[in-house]
Nucleic acid binder design. Structure first.
Lengths: 336, 336
DNA sequence: GGTCAGAATGTTAGCGTTAACGTCGACCGT
DNA sequence: ACGGTCGACGTTAACGCTAACATTCTGACC
């Protein structure tokens, strides 16, 4: 009858007839131990169901193998995808992720930081940051490798950046509308303290400017349907309507479409609508929504790749990946 | 100039003129140390910016203070909310959560289990399980406290159960439609291996039976809009249409509404629709969707409460919380 | 066959914390 | 004034692992 306690390294060593250090070596640098011994040790590990104690290992090596992930508590779609990809990638590399939402009622960025410091994380990934979280990140970056998932943080960012090129995404959306003959395209923006929102504004603006068109005022928005609805209700009261609306995300677009319907306008015949994100369901909106799909998972993987590199070496860099336009009914038929 | 290394307990002890054990006591059982000494120690901690090393603590106490959270990778809305609540509650209790999605391409339930065992989690919460994950949970429950967030797992479940009463939720939805005069109410179900989906079927069925109505066949579905669309397209081909559709979630309802629109049917005049979940945007669907809102956060908090109790004592129990009907346009006007 | 290099393994000493026990006073009753 | 009790604190020994160094073994070479 075997003891009921979890086996430790010396148990394995005893069973294999070697010292505990040899067991450690088999686990950490297998090449240093002769194949025959290695096999004996591995068999003993197997037979006993031995699992290394990670706390002890962390204590001895002074490496926690933990990565902190900060994400906005409000948004659940994109960040969830990215976070999952981050988890997978980290785990594949032998790291464990610990996540904490921020800017919720629950915890301030400062609390979150404390939390991560207590856990002795080796690095931090910040998903979809606002100006506030970026600032917190900046303080962090001195002492710890930080990867920020967002572009356009300004010069001198000491953190590594992995991002989707939202400026490109917004440009794709806008140019798509331009190609369909639209000349009066308004933009309902995301919250102004979000980098992602700013990038989309810039892309929309650039596309219009490149086409030699005047750039209308940005319609200040948010991320939710209610806001898109409210903003668009104001919009349809104006004497002259735009022929197309480009919304900073799909929920805004959804709200906008409701307001347009209620005003008796047809989509896309009277007003075309394009969203951003391709959230679940957007392909069944009324009408199905033309939108921009982000490579969420790709970004998550890249973030970990960059972070792990940063943990070993350093040198802040920037990685951009490309979003993709998804054309559906809301933006109208192929132009004649 | 202070040393650059992170201060450890003995540094604090030296500065406060006590032994390291006294510092430990101040942290763990403050009542055992005289107020004056305690104050000195606390000040030293403050001044040095000392943080206890969690690995060392875990090693000495044999308690990892880690909780594993398993959630389905497919669904992102509900689980995200619940997971966030779980994180908050756990953190408030001094625990850290580590999450892993399962049933994705990435990791089998078995891998996830291994992962958690390696981390030496003290307990596991399973969010929104299918029959498969429940089975894995059953194996686990012998060796580790497990809380499953779902009801109806069958007798003899060794795990603790925290759940939303989906049977009640489905009943509320169905009775709402009955109250509006509907007599022919079909149900588009979720995937059959989901406990939540089964409970909703049961609630719908019970409500119809209680009203003395025949129960039509369940329309087998899934969780996504595409399925709701496809199923409803079949439905509208039938010679006699139901007057109301109760869908197992909002995306199914969304897909159903699209199919109804395309068939030239008006919502709610020709066919009423009710969903489940109250996902973001459902209040701006076309028309705004009557649905059932789940207390996601509440469930998360309860899950941790129950799990922590289980970690100390034991005794599997069951906690149910109540969902809430949200009436909007898609289910029609108040009956005359 | 003895020497020596280098590979293979063993020994010892931490990592930073808590647990278990020991010590030292102060204060009580008599 | 003296033993006994209890509160406050110190000392020592784990916890399970890796790092650094010491030792033994292996085989090639002369």
């Amino acid at each position: 009858m075997s003891s009921d306690k979890a086996p430790v390294m010396s148990d394995v060593a005893a069973r294999a007839g070697v010292s505990h250090q040899t067991v450690s070596r088999v686990l950490n640098s297998p090449d240093l131990v002769r194949p025959a011994t290695r096999a004996r040790v591995l068999r003993a590990i197997e037979e006993l169901g031995y699992r290394p104690n990670l706390s002890a290992r962390a204590l001895a090596t002074k490496r926690s193998r933990l990565i902190g992930v900060v994400y906005p508590s409000g948004l659940l779609f994109g960040p969830s995808h990215t976070t999952m990809a981050i988890q997978d990638a980290a785990r594949a590399a032998g790291y464990t992720t610990v996540s904490a939402s921020t800017e919720g009622a629950t915890a301030s960025p400062h609390d979150t930081l404390e939390f991560f410091l207590d856990l002795a994380v080796e690095g931090i990934v910040i998903v979809a940051p606002t100006t506030e979280t970026a600032q917190a990140a900046r303080r962090l970056a001195g002492s710890l490798p930080v990867v920020i998932i967002a572009a356009g943080l300004g010069a001198g960012t000491p953190a590594h950046v992995v991002a989707v090129d939202h400026q490109l995404g917004a440009r794709l959306a806008t140019e798509h509308l331009l190609a369909r003959g639209h000349r009066d395209i308004v933009h309902i923006a995301g919250p102004e303290n979000w980098f992602d929102a700013r990038a989309r504004i810039a892309g929309w603006r650039a596309a219009l400017t490149d086409a030699g068109l005047p750039v209308p005022d940005v319609l200040p928005g948010g991320w939710d349907a209610r806001t898109g609805y409210a903003v668009t209700r104001e919009l349809v009261r104006r004497p002259s309507l735009p022929t197309a609306v480009f919304a900073a995300n799909d929920l805004l677009a959804l709200g906008a479409m409701r307001a347009l319907h209620e005003a008796g306008l047809r989509i896309p015949e009277d007003v075309a609508v394009v969203g951003y994100d391709d959230v679940p369901g957007s392909d069944h909106y009324h009408p199905p929504l033309t939108t921009v799909r982000q490579p969420f998972a790709e970004v998550g993987h890249q973030a970990i790749e960059v972070l792990l590199a940063a943990i070993r070496w350093s040198e802040p860099g920037e990685v951009l990946s490309r979003p993709q336009l998804v054309v559906r009914r809301s933006s109208g038929p192929q132009p004649g």
